[in-house]
Write a protein that binds this DNA or RNA. Structure first.
Lengths: 191, 191
DNA sequence: CATTTTGTGTGATTTAAATCACACAAACAA
DNA sequence: TTGTTTGTGTGATTTAAATCACACAAAATG
């Protein structure tokens, strides 16, 4: 296994919980690496949600399709982000979402069982996951605020502020699917 | 301090992490009780967000006011729920939200410092908070899905399914503010 | 008790955004 | 390189929901 991949994970964890060499040797055995090509699906509706993914590189979208075949993007993910169909992953139900690769890269895969084992074995890892969840929870609440009371304009500006690099790398159409606004309305905002 | 209040907290924690008498004796010292009257504010915009609250009884709304003086409800809370202005609580910034009591009751108050101390001292408490955050994260993602792609009708039905008791206890106007739908539109849904 | 405040239904009107329908450009594939 | 798919702008039209404007009922208040 390429050591470089694991060093990236280690650095990421260290930002929250300091771990020593011995601990990391044990921790890293819980992950597997996967190379992903553009257009490839890491998850499709109906699949068993085996993993949560830690993004080493590339760009991905987590989305679902409603009754009228319309797509809605729940999450983008890029370097050092975590992604999965979380409602299904945590409750171990079949996927209701898709994960598609937009820009090729690599991810680390973690099963729920290994996640729980890491949390139970290492207080530090339980701490790490709690802090990540805390940040995630706050981010989702801010997104809900924007969906409840933000105009398309405000949503777009906030997106541009939070993810300036995604703005340049992904089609506007997908940003519209993330913001809950039609492609056309979004296009008319920045004239 | 009334023991009954603390037993309620203990039962709540036990559902996730088994703790013994000795541990709980230590844990409970981190909380304080507060009685809250109808109409009373536990938090107002601009306040320092000193606490997260564990609801022993009563009903509360967590809301904010946008530029046009319109109210939006981010969260309702009742028995055994936790509530705060989380973005501000976790980042220790001034409140952007209000918490108002709709039905009088009691809450337990926990400071961020005590929350972190509990998590650091007891692996079990760190586990407890992680599990609570996991559930909260999933709930918020499902709400985002509903805001992105749900019609007012679907949002209302989902609310009724999730919180049948709140349906009866709080005015429809407030449910509308939670769902991001006007009072009038909501009223026309269930004819 | 009377009276103010708060909640709720319902019609009429307005409005923002979705949808439909193009044209054209850029990226990708054969 | 040529055709095909994918992305993007922009006008015209439709539509769902917000807003405005009431009436009346229920609850809280003095």
């Amino acid at each position: 296994m390429n050591l470089y991949y694991m060093e990236k994970l280690r650095t990421h964890i260290q930002h929250i919980a300091p771990i020593n060499d011995e601990e990391f040797e044990e921790i890293k055995t819980h992950f597997t690496v996967k190379r992903v090509r553009k257009g490839q699906y890491l998850l499709s509706e109906g699949d068993e949600v085996k993993h949560e993914f830690f993004v080493l590189s590339g760009i991905y979208k987590v989305f679902y399709i409603d009754g009228q075949e319309k797509e809605y993007i729940l999450q983008f993910a890029q370097e050092n982000w975590w992604m999965s169909d979380y409602p299904s992953f945590f409750k171990q139900k079949d996927a209701t979402m898709y994960i598609e690769c937009l820009v090729e890269g690599e991810v680390l895969c973690l099963t729920l069982q290994n996640r729980e084992k890491l949390s139970a074995t290492f207080h530090k890892m339980e701490h790490f996951f709690r802090v990540k969840l805390t940040n995630g929870y706050v981010a989702l609440q801010l997104r809900i605020k924007l969906l409840l009371s933000g105009t398309p304009q405000q949503r777009y500006e906030e997106f541009a502020r939070l993810y300036p690099n995604l703005m340049q790398q992904i089609p506007k159409k997908l940003i519209a699917e993330f913001l809950g606004v039609s492609r056309e309305t979004l296009s008319r905002l920045y004239q």
